[in-house]
Amino acid sequence: MPDLSLVRSEIERMRLQVGRQRREILQLQRAGIVTASAEGLLQRMLDMVDRLCEQREHLKAEQARAQPRRRRSARHA
């Protein structure tokens, strides 16, 4: 299973690509070019980001379970 930092960096990379794809779609629309295939690609990219976010949350939960719990001391007023 991938490392948490690897998944986080992949999410960031994909988000940058999503932004580029959105800008490209806008340019194509301004030029009057059909953007259906570009929008399909954008949706697949967004789906990938969603899957990576789910994987990140799963890894975070695994790490939290693996760490020993710290005992809290009672606060005295």
Score class of each variant (00 low, 15 high):
G40W: 00
M45K: 07
Q43L: 03
I11K: 06
R72L: 14
D3A: 10
Q29I: 07
E54Q: 10
M14R: 09
V49K: 04
R65W: 14
I33A: 04
R56Y: 05
I11T: 00
A36K: 06
C53T: 13
Q17T: 07
S73K: 15
Q67N: 08
K60M: 12
S73P: 11
Q17S: 12
A61P: 05
R56C: 04
R51Q: 12
L52D: 03
E10P: 02
A64M: 15
S9K: 06
R23L: 10
Q43V: 04
R65N: 15
A64T: 14
R56G: 03
P2C: 07
L59F: 11
G32V: 11
Q17H: 07
E62V: 05
G32R: 06
E39H: 02
L26I: 05
A31P: 02
A31Q: 13
A61R: 14
L16V: 09
P2V: 08
S73F: 15
L46E: 11
E62Q: 10
S5G: 01
Q63V: 02
P2H: 03
L46G: 02
L28Q: 11
L4R: 14
L6W: 01
I33K: 00
Q27R: 15
P2W: 08
D3C: 08
R72S: 12
Q43A: 03
L42H: 00
Q43S: 02
E54L: 13
G19C: 01
Q21W: 01
V49Q: 04
R72N: 08
M14L: 11
G40F: 00
P2L: 12
Q21T: 08
E39N: 03
L16N: 14
L42M: 00
I33P: 00
E10D: 07
R44V: 07
R8Y: 01
A64F: 14
A36S: 10
S73R: 15
R71F: 09
A66C: 06
A66K: 14
R56W: 05
Q17G: 06
L4F: 12
Q63W: 08
M1S: 13
A31Y: 00
R20C: 03
A38V: 00
R70S: 01
V18P: 04
G32D: 11
